[in-house]
């Protein structure tokens, strides 16, 4: 697998048109890292502003991983730890809602790790029954993002 100059130009356009600052591609070991000029290498905003921690720490939340699967469903687990987003960008409709049908390739959300956006796919065919993961919050590796009743 190799990339032509034309391919790279098209990928650059796709990044330009998106709301993301960086894009990482890994095609059979060939890696491409693109960053918008002016994009901060470090996250522009912390999930919780530093000022908060200077006062009192936000209450410690014991992880949501204890959420129980509704009968007859399978969880779609977070493939990595990061901030979970249900929509492609703020203000846009979510990728999926409860009741929607998903295919294995359906994108169900995005997980951000240090400004790198990773799309998450359903990996299963069926009906979305519940979405326990909340938009903009930290999910851990293996945490259930949604529950799907497989076909």
């Amino acid at each position: 697998m190799s990339l032509t100059a034309k391919d790279v130009a098209e990928i650059l356009q796709a990044l330009e048109a998106s709301s993301f600052d960086t894009l990482d591609l890994d095609l059979n070991g060939m890696k491409l890292h693109l960053r918008r000029s002016g994009a901060a290498p470090a996250p522009a905003a912390r999930a919780v502003p530093t000022a908060v921690s200077a006062q009192a720490p936000a209450p410690v939340v014991h992880a949501a991983k204890a959420v129980e699967a509704p009968p007859g469903t399978v969880p779609v687990a977070a493939p990595l730890l990061g901030i979970f987003y249900r929509a492609p960008k703020p203000g846009e409709p979510p990728f999926i809602e409860a009741g929607a049908r998903v295919e294995p390739e359906t994108i169900i959300g995005i997980i951000e790790v240090m400004k790198l956006m990773n799309t998450v796919r359903a990996g299963v065919r069926g009906e979305v029954v519940a979405i326990p993961a909340r938009n903009g919050e930290l999910v851990e590796y293996g945490e259930a993002l949604l529950f799907v009743r497989p076909d």
């Binding site: 908060v52 990061g82 901030i83 590796y141």
Partner: peptide, 27 residues
């Protein structure tokens, strides 16, 4: 407790971005 990945260190304890993201996400 935050789970950051599978058992192999290269997939979890050695992942710099994931650990920093965990610190930020947990404030």
């Amino acid at each position: 407790v935050l789970c950051i990945g599978p058992g192999r260190p290269g997939d979890s304890y050695l992942k710099i971005d994931t650990v920093v993201q965990a610190a930020l996400g947990a404030a």
